[in-house]
Write a protein that binds this DNA or RNA. Structure first.
Lengths: 199, 199
DNA sequence: TGGCCCATGTAATCTGTTACATGATTGT
DNA sequence: ACAATCATGTAACAGATTACATGGGCCA
């Protein structure tokens, strides 16, 4: 799913401007995707050219003009097709976990702030979900799918938070001890047939 | 963290070829990143040109030649610096969750296979982690960081699995009922100042 | 007065994916 | 006979990030 399809999907919930879509992605879709203006605006232009969305310009007092985009019948069809055709890949890209993997190379203080920061981030994110559940906004908030995904997010983040809290100290102390005795085994099982000078 | 830095990191555990690194990323690093040959080989070439890794060619009988890469002192320094400088972003990109968000637009059977498939994937992944913990391989497997990350993965995946199993039926049934009464509220709070024909 | 919100867009750059090209060996 | 493993690479392409450019209103 690229930004174009993401925009189509968001527009199934109603008309919106590029600016609105960015906000929407940041809040409602933030658990599983992200997109910046640099990809949203070109995407909307292309979708308009393809006839998958229509666009109306609106003048506002004291604010810049807005372009309100609307999903066309063709756009809806394309989105539904894409939704069913896409292989449901779930991918995590985390410099946080990468850093933790190399705990033995990091100062304990850095490790600590890394984990504490992540816990705070998780708390903030879970808080936002809870608030969005409480606040009466649009009907979309109560759709089965959105409820399910919010629940999923909370469950997974809660587990992450619990794990981080429980194992935090263990990691920091054991990383410190391991640090003193460095090891460098070969990455592969087969014995290396040549040797390097720098060892 | 890009592929170049990822390669440097992997090479802190010992010398390896591009092919080895791919395997390594697929197994050990799979929880938080991924990389294909198309990025690994160019990355290694660039790192060699920059003097961050050194390279030795090895002839093998019955197998293609291998280029064994070795982290230089400069490379190690660059990696440590990058590791501490990087903002520890944790990002999820999931067409699976996106699809579930639009449960009201999908046939129940499709929804079911989506969730069942994901559960199977989680089981497989958790199984792989458990196996890698049991199998005695290199010392790296027992480093504090790798243990921590494996535990994290298992905890989070377990929570995801539990949630999916518990709410699966609820989603499928309630998505079906919502489907019959479509709604289209505006995406933003402010009332729209113009109207479209296609409604 | 400084910074954030609203609002749209372009252009350069970075990064990674996909497909192609080659080729011997081993297992089913 | 066919697929998989081992092994390295290139080139075209897709996709997204980043920085830039513009400009009024609002709040502390």
């Amino acid at each position: 799913m690229n930004v174009k399809e993401l925009c189509l999907g968001a527009l199934t919930f109603g008309d919106a401007s590029g600016y609105d879509l960015k906000k929407f992605f940041e809040t409602t879709f933030s658990q599983f995707c992200s997109a910046g203006f640099g990809s949203i605006y070109p995407a909307l232009a292309e979708l308009t050219a393809e006839g998958l969305v229509s666009c109306e310009q609106h003048s506002q007092e004291g604010k810049p003009d807005r372009k309100l985009y609307h999903l066309t019948a063709a756009g809806r069809k394309v989105f539904l097709r894409a939704l069913q055709a896409a292989s449901p890949v779930h991918r995590v890209k985390s410099d946080f976990l990468l850093a933790l993997y190399f705990a033995h190379l990091l100062p304990p203080a850095h490790l600590q702030s890394l984990i504490d920061g992540r816990i705070a981030e998780l708390d903030r994110h879970m808080q936002l979900i809870t608030e969005s559940e409480a606040a009466p906004d649009t009907q979309r908030k109560y759709s089965a799918g959105s409820q399910f995904v919010r629940g999923y997010g909370k469950a997974v983040m809660r587990a992450a938070r619990d794990y981080l809290c429980a194992r935090r100290q263990t990691l920091i102390t054991s990383a410190r001890t391991v640090k003193s005795k460095p090891f460098k085994p070969a990455l592969r099982n087969g014995a290396s047939r040549a040797h390097h000078q720098q060892y």
